[in-house]
Design a binder for these strands. Structure first.
Lengths: 200, 200
DNA sequence: CATCAAGGTTAGGGATCCTTACCCAACACG
DNA sequence: CGTGTTGGGTAAGGATCCCTAACCTTGATG
């Protein structure tokens, strides 16, 4: 997972330790002492590699994001048409939440409450990731596949919000996430809306 | 704001102090010492009325929720048809975020990261609030106004997610929220979806 | 008038985050 | 070959911060 750059072993052990601990408890309940103990290093070493306890969280999240950003990109290769791409992106996105609870918890729950997160480099990575969706939307508007009377950035926010909120409760309560099932329903909602259509 | 039950003055001062402090900084950055000083009481008094520092936050949020729950209920009186009710509810919901940033920040940012929040009584109040939307959706399905091929609870999650995510960034970056404008766009999205309709 | 509850304070203790100073092995270099 | 110097890591401690136990005061009540 951690892109094995030439990071010193201590740094890797610390990041790994946080990931392990996040499986069982939320970030606020994890102490630096605990992280150090799990990593098998001393507390002070954390502060050699990370500015903060929070900076550690941000950097771990950043590693996930780089990984999944790349994956989303390749997942979309060879798919034609904005609608099909959006469907695929929704599936991929949900599937990440379904299979990687630690990542889901960090992104959906832990970092949100820190105000400095929104000015961090990690947040920029999130935006870069969601820009994929934005570009598809713009492409779809050009091709008359997607309505162009609502600003694309607005649509992006609305779509992502619905995805994340649907997954949120499932992540919080540890319920299973079925990517296939949720994608189907979400696409119906996102593409056609909740209005009852005229019976054919 | 704080429904003036027969609460002792100290309790009111503490809750007020937190509300004041939340206007400038986020919950995690506020210390109990700071709260006590702002309230003009000693730190220990906080723990006479609240189990935790977090419990204080939950109770303050609960006061907001009771207030806005009531208001949403009366706001919907006299409106006919599920679609019209949903439109109104969306407007009311957004308008609360637009006018009450402290409430918005607590609900959208601060409490989310605490895992015990989701088992708290305050969270039950949130559910009670969102049940309004659920009932309208069910009503709309019965009246053929809203499509019934997606579970109502799913639709509720998706709709609320899109609303909240649209407001979230505006709250985080302190940008203005125009209830009229956002409601218009959100309703278009929620009711009709992003698909380009056949040109008439 | 003794007692008791309610509202509030004093004083302090343990945990947590973070910093400063230090150790030591490996390696470059004159 | 002696000598810096850099990178990885440790030891120890300090400043806060959250929370608790015990105590004080005042007014109501039997």
């Amino acid at each position: 997972m951690a892109d094995a750059r030439a990071w010193p072993p201590g740094r890797i052990k610390i990041a790994d330790a946080l990931r392990v601990l996040l499986e069982k408890k939320d970030f606020g309940a994890i102490t630096t002492a605990e992280i150090a103990k799990t990593a098998g290093v001393t507390e002070a070493l954390i502060y050699k590699y990370f500015k903060d306890k929070r900076d550690l969280l941000y950097q771990v999240l950043a590693e996930y994001l780089e990984h999944y950003h790349l994956r989303a990109h390749t997942d979309l290769k060879g798919i034609k048409g904005a609608s099909n791409k959006i469907r695929k992106l929704i599936w991929t996105h949900i599937n990440v939440y379904a299979t990687d609870r630690v990542f889901a918890k960090i992104l959906l729950l832990d970092v949100r409450s820190f105000s400095d997160y929104y000015t961090s480099g990690t947040y920029k990575l999130v935006k870069k990731y969601t820009d994929i969706l934005l570009e598809i939307i713009q492409e779809g508007m050009k091709d008359q596949e997607i309505r162009d009377d609502i600003p694309p950035v607005f649509l992006r926010q609305a779509i992502l919000g619905s995805i994340e909120n649907v997954c949120l409760t499932r992540v919080v309560f540890g319920r299973k996430i079925s990517a296939d099932d949720l994608t189907e329903k979400l696409c119906e909602f996102v593409f056609k809306g909740i209005e009852q259509r005229a019976v054919k």
